[in-house]
Design a protein around this nucleic acid. Structure first.
Lengths: 307, 307
DNA sequence: GCTCCTTGTTTATGCTGTAAACAAATCTAT
DNA sequence: ATAGATTTGTTTACAGCATAAACAAGGAGC
């Protein structure tokens, strides 16, 4: 269960050259991953087993282990494979290659269209999670990002670049929206799965829980909400949540805007600076601070990359 | 695996009288649940098996089936058991028993303190999820709510009652915040679990993925964010996200406030009404509409309750 | 004493991921 | 062409899981 846990092997597989199409008539990583995705799509991730994948390709289960280290790595490969679908939908990001500078240059949508762009990214991700209902549930904090995951993350980051957020805030915003989408997708997938498995819809199931309703009177607020029709036309959790989250991000951006307008402080030593009338607003109070920041950047930052 | 799936049996168990303390020296539901919680807390939910629980109590695994229908129901019972811890922390909600009326009366914190109250609820829930790292991961859309889950939900609803939101919006807000907390808790629990299992910290693990960094230059925005220090002092995902979500809720409330100030429309027929100077703002344009709304409420609403 | 019910045990089934040994085919060097 | 090495797929085996079914022991009521 925990023998061949070598992430570098996974990296190698994920970023391998797609010379996979050589198609010697036997097994191949690509064929295995495709078969696995088909099974998981059609019958759910819990129906995915090494034996099933092997048999679908006309081999035994053990045969897969000659091409893929284990099941967890197979799932990693499946993730990046399907993430590739979405990348194709977006026009190439064409990010301006400006390297450093404490500010990150604006991305698609420019300085004002961030909300539409970020929302579109969230919706694309959600659509992907609906096509592959197992996806959101298996992306862990240590699943190695493949090229497609990286491209998606890059695009999302570019979405909130150059609108006044700090770099850590940009990462946090993308993470928040991404995890929101995944959370809702997991929920939705679970509903669909048990509905299909049991043949009973969510509505019907909860409707049949009369024994619960008997206790309702003990909860005054819930009773009032119920009687006011709070469950007659429920809000769509995804739409409602996405609006709230984006509103929250908007509030953050506005807050940053205001702060920048009223007072400008050096990015290194924090001393207050007066606002120059025109041109690019300065980030450092003096040439010395600018140099210090540069040296700090060169010596290399620490911490992990996450999608 | 799918035989004794009778939710009503689960309801019965969850809402059973706590006469459980009779303590005939054999097994009992309470003892089983406690033992299961201890195992899951100490060794993770994946280490929880019927055999382990039985053996911890000095019996065989199969013995549990005389008291609990199956493992899934046992997990339901575990959830409500630990949710009971939090309820005790809060002063009794003392909800004003006003029954109907299209408005839901204000809860703890009153008409202005909703944010503090809701945030406190979220933090309590999170603390609970940290004490029992398996909790957030097992609460599904069809896990039957026990008395403690219901009490928690009631309290959270009361938190956003009477501040101008519609009933469906109240439900949506509580759901959004709850799922946010659960999502972050699941993430955090996963990090802790793999750190303990592998002995490698998240930082170290990502640091060792040099092979990934080699590709970094292909992603200009990510590179810029990295070089600007976006990963040096990352935002705390929970704190950052909670602020964003609450900001989003605040925006919604402000929006509702403005709409109500500028124009008032009948809750039944929607026709515009002028604003009376003083007193409680009227919800219906005429006695007739008020009566229609009342009949609508009496005939009973439809839909499911969810936490 | 007899019967019924509750409680716990034993045995068995079918599923999982994967380690280890083995066999066959194919590639490489001579 | 032939010997050796490498790759690829198979067989067998193991430990673990939830739980169905049959069985055994004790207590309660008649």
């Amino acid at each position: 269960m925990a023998a061949q846990e070598d992430p570098d092997r996974t990296v190698e597989l994920l970023w391998r050259e797609p010379r996979d199409a050589v198609s010697r008539q036997g097994l191949s990583v690509g064929a295995i991953v495709s078969a696995a995705v088909e099974i998981a799509d059609a019958e759910g991730i819990e129906a995915l087993s090494m034996r099933r994948v092997g048999e679908r390709l006309g081999f035994t289960g053990m045969s897969l282990y000659r091409h893929v280290p284990g099941k967890t790595q197979l799932v990693d490969l499946m993730c990046d494979a399907v993430l590739g679908e979405t990348v194709a939908e977006v026009e190439p990001s064409a990010g301006s290659g400006l390297p450093a500078g404490s500010d990150v240059p604006p991305g698609p949508g420019g300085r004002s269209g961030w909300r539409e762009a970020l929302e579109a990214w969230a919706r694309r991700y959600r659509a992907l999670c609906r096509r592959h209902p197992w996806l959101a549930g298996v992306r862990g904090t240590r699943s190695v990002p493949g090229p497609n995951a990286m491209a998606g993350f890059e695009h999302a980051l570019a979405t909130v670049a150059g609108i006044g957020l700090g770099p850590a805030e940009m990462v946090a915003v993308v993470g928040l929206v991404g995890r929101f989408v995944e959370g809702e997708a997991v929920r939705e997938a679970e509903v669909a799965r048990v509905e299909r498995r049991t043949g009973v819809s969510e509505q019907d199931w909860w409707g049949a829980r009369e024994s619960l309703f008997a206790e309702l009177s003990r909860y005054p607020t819930l009773t009032a909400v119920w009687e006011a029709g709070g469950y007659d036309e429920p809000e769509d959790p995804f739409e409602f949540g996405l609006r709230r989250v984006l509103d929250g991000v908007e509030a953050l951006i506005r807050q940053r805007d205001e702060r920048r307008d009223e007072s400008l402080s050096c990015a290194v030593c924090g001393t207050a600076m007066e606002r120059g009338g025109t041109g690019r607003p300065r980030a450092y109070c003096s040439r010395g601070c600018q140099q210090r920041a540069y040296r700090g950047r060169r010596s290399g930052p620490r911490g992990g990359i996450r999608q």
